[in-house]
């Protein structure tokens, strides 16, 4: 039995616009999110992830109006992260059609948040997101608040703790690879996927279908996410929304 691997474009929101970062910095304006969603719809994308980098950094509330417009155009699975701090916010997001909520910093500051969301909406509604930066010695450090603050837990330990609290999925994102299109940090992905029993989404660094494939075959991820790969074209990073066709991803 060959299972189709989810290929997930991760789109970054700030204000009303869509942006792409490198190493969580150097934001480049990509365009209008609704327009992008329509294109991804036509391409029958497996899933879309939206992360509000403004809300993630300063903890402001999600932009519900924009998200409602986005969700009404989405006929595919949709996840959202950024500034989600309460069950009430999750209820509102679920009601507008976002069925997966990505939690990151708030899970660290509010120890009960994941469990409360999972109890109300089921584990599959909560995705635990872990951003990891390697220091100059190559040691992995978990960062929160959009890469601004270090926490005192190793990625595997934080992933296991998130699983214990009730997440249905873990997304592991390598900050150093973000937007760089140099391939995933496979060691990082493998260490987390090998430790938890929930599905793991690899993020950070994808540039090609073979990168996406490596996350699954070499690092045991169940899904592969990417950013730059789906919004840039060519070495000058011209903005162009793309997604692998059924032929290009055949057998994957």
């Amino acid at each position: 039995m060959k299972l189709r691997t989810r290929i997930i474009p991760l789109l970054l929101l700030k204000g009303q616009g869509l942006y792409k970062t490198r190493k969580f910095r150097d934001e480049t304006y990509i365009g209008d999110p609704i327009n992008a969603v329509r294109i991804f719809n036509e391409k029958a994308v497996d899933e879309l992830g939206f992360l509000d980098i403004g809300a993630a950094r300063n903890g402001s509330d999600p932009n519900f109006d924009l998200l409602k417009d986005i969700a009404s155009e989405c006929f595919m699975p949709l996840s959202y992260g950024g500034g989600v701090k309460s069950v009430e916010m999750v209820r509102e997001l679920v009601a507008i059609g976002i069925e997966k909520i990505v939690v990151n910093s708030a899970a660290w500051t509010d120890k009960g948040l994941i469990t409360r969301i999972a109890d109300h909406f089921g584990s599959s509604t909560v995705v635990g997101s872990i951003d990891v930066k390697r220091n100059w010695r190559g040691k992995e450090q978990v960062m929160i608040r959009g890469g601004q603050e270090k926490i005192a837990l190793a990625p595997v330990d934080w992933a296991l703790e998130m699983e214990r609290r009730g997440v249905g999925e873990i997304m592991i994102n390598a900050i150093d690879r973000d937007g760089e299109m140099t391939g995933y940090d496979l060691d990082l992905v493998r260490s987390v996927a090998g430790a938890v029993s929930v599905p793991v989404i690899a993020a950070g660094g994808a540039s090609s279908i073979s990168d996406l494939q490596a996350a699954v075959t070499e690092a045991d991820a169940t899904a592969a996410a990417g950013g730059a790969m789906f919004v840039f074209q060519g070495k000058h990073r011209a903005v162009l929304i793309t997604y692998p066709t059924e032929e290009e991803r055949a057998g994957f």
Binding site: L3, R4, T5, R6, G168, V198, P199, V200, D220, T222
Partner: peptide
């Protein structure tokens, strides 16, 4: 094989 739960994804 590995069968993580939940079963999340596109299936025939």
């Amino acid at each position: 094989g590995r069968w993580p739960l939940p079963n999340i994804g596109w299936r025939d």
